[in-house]
Design a binder for these strands. Structure first.
Length: 165
DNA sequence: GCCAACGTTGGC
DNA sequence: GCCAACGTTGGC
């Protein structure tokens, strides 16, 4: 079992990018709910990041995928670290996993709190053509649903996005 | 709706 | 542990 990466008191929050299909769950849904359980992650590498690397206070860019205009659309903050994703044990859930042992759950969730919409959304098309984001995971590893974002890229995105909604 | 990329499964 | 078959993701 991998160990948690210690996050010292004076270390800065890290930035992540979580993908969601807006038809399923959008930034507007998160804004309405204020807090949400980010469940349904069914990929081991993404799961490992939830388990080992994502900490309370980390910042999360919300990204809309599989839609007309894929883009980074909002910001959230992690308010609860990894816990068992209950959907894996719910046979009626789209995220049900019959093979996940109840005594050793495979899948984890975190809790996010809505922060804000980005005044200017940052489209995938822009990210690809701008040149300054070529080493983003979003470009290099587009299928990973939990991505890390460097401080430099995060700052650039926030600047482009405008200060507030 | 197509299809390339890539993650997962399972037989050997 | 390899790798072919299969399933899913997600941009276009």
């Amino acid at each position: 079992m991998a160990k948690k990466t210690p996050r010292t008191e004076n270390s800065k929050p890290q930035f992540w990018l979580f993908k969601t299909e807006p038809d399923e769950y959008s930034i507007d849904d998160l804004a309405t709910e204020k807090n949400c359980t980010w469940e349904g992650i069914r990929n081991y590498q993404a799961r490992n990041r939830l388990r080992d690397d994502i900490r309370i206070g980390d910042q999360v860019f919300i990204y809309h995928s599989s839609c007309a205009k894929p883009a980074i659309v909002g910001l959230a903050i992690v308010t609860q670290e990894a816990y068992t994703d209950s959907a894996q044990f719910d046979p009626t859930s789209h995220y049900y996993d019959a093979k996940s042992p109840t005594d050793k759950p495979r899948w984890l969730a975190v809790t996010l709190r809505y922060q804000r919409h980005l005044a200017n959304t940052i489209t995938l098309a822009f990210i690809k053509k701008s040149g300054q984001f070529i080493d983003m995971e979003l470009v290099a590893r587009p299928r990973l649903s939990i991505q890390s974002v460097s401080i430099e890229h995060a700052n650039a995105i926030l600047q482009l996005a405008g200060a507030t909604e």
